[in-house]
Design a protein around this nucleic acid. Structure first.
Lengths: 204, 204
DNA sequence: CTAATTTCGAACTGTTCAGTTATATATTTG
DNA sequence: CAAATATATAACTGAACAGTTCGAAATTAG
């Protein structure tokens, strides 16, 4: 019989790996990549310096893990907002509203790790990751738009690819403005207006 | 008679103040705010360390001057693109194309100092400045849209305020994507599509 | 040519930082 | 309880950094 929860030999860790990464997310998010020192991470993650290097590696490695975990969570939330069984208009509006809400969340830094912090990291792997994340986001929206055609919410000649990109562009822009301090209420209103705009049928 | 070009007493400076600030712009743009050291500025601006402190102050002071000069230049170019005597569609498209072109300029860092670097600077004055710059940009576009109503390019009930913000949001989003490496050609095409979208009359 | 003034170049100083090492501590195995 | 193993705590090391100081150099004023 295989005991999966077999305690490993040696002194047990005093921290939770996943939890520490989540705390690291907050550290990077609030201080930016270059602004973060190892001591910031040691303090913020609650992990001793040598353990931090042994378990997670250096700053770059920690950031990459943080970024990927963050992207996964965000992507899941975005997909949830987009693909629940609502009207197309509501789905798109929800997607944009979610972007605004998570970017203006009190208690954590404003904006978004992927849009406001990661792009400044001068690292090829980070850039590649961001590009693929951008493409995935647009693909997700495009899928929803196609479903909208099937459901008859928008006409069959609706330019799904172009509009999908425009939806994600609005999400990006709203998130950026959240970061520099635009109030949530304003941005939520603009999210609605953006949803209305991108769903307009092709001009006659 | 006042001799304006009276040479000041003492050893003349070996650098040009304005030129040094332009070089500083490149330094901040390519390395981000936190990523820049005083030595980077000394090397990049061609100004000796003590002179740098004496003439410009510390890193924060230099960045503020750089940011303001940059914003002035950008604002002038944007106004030029928007307000030249062209069709409304061309004006808006030019505005967005200019955003893409300057964000994908070879030889200098991608993106834009105001959108990609400055928002991460954790400084109240910088944030206030950015907010006002965002508002100015939207106001400029809105003015052009109003002129478009006068000229009959768009109907009198055209939602100028909302669409003006949307235009600047597209500029923001396109600039951001330039930064993470989207090719100029792609972005230029999307600039056209964005211009078409935001000029659609209100839905019937 | 001398004194006054301003900038320049180089070096100095205390601090902060990344990454490592040494030792103590907690736990499993036998 | 003793040996083996893995983590925690604290301290160390060399490099990088911000801001300053000091003497040399370039210029004007007299």
């Amino acid at each position: 019989m295989i005991q999966k929860t077999a305690r490993p030999v040696g002194r047990p860790r005093s921290f939770d790996e996943t939890g520490a990464l989540e705390k690291a997310t907050q550290v990077f998010w609030s201080k930016g990549y270059d602004g973060v020192t190892i001591d910031d991470l040691v303090a913020g993650m609650g992990v001793g310096r040598p353990s931090l290097y042994a378990v997670f590696g250096d700053k770059r490695a920690i950031f990459l893990r943080v970024l990927k975990a963050y992207a996964e969570r965000k992507g899941a939330s975005a997909a949830k907002a987009l693909l629940s069984p609502k009207s197309l208009r509501d789905s798109i509006a929800d997607f944009l509203r979610y972007a605004v809400e998570s970017a203006t969340q009190k208690g954590s830094a404003r904006g978004c790790l992927m849009m406001c912090v990661a792009p400044l990291v001068n690292d090829a792997e980070v850039q590649r990751f961001l590009q693929s994340a951008v493409a995935s986001g647009a693909a997700l929206v495009e899928r929803r738009l196609r479903d909208g055609i099937t459901a008859g919410d928008i006409p069959p000649d609706f330019p799904v690819a172009v509009r999908a990109i425009q939806v994600t562009d609005f999400a990006r822009a709203l998130t950026m403005r959240a970061q520099i301090g635009s109030p949530r209420k304003t941005l939520l209103k603009e999210a609605e207006e953006a949803a209305d705009l991108v769903l307009q049928p092709r001009r006659v």
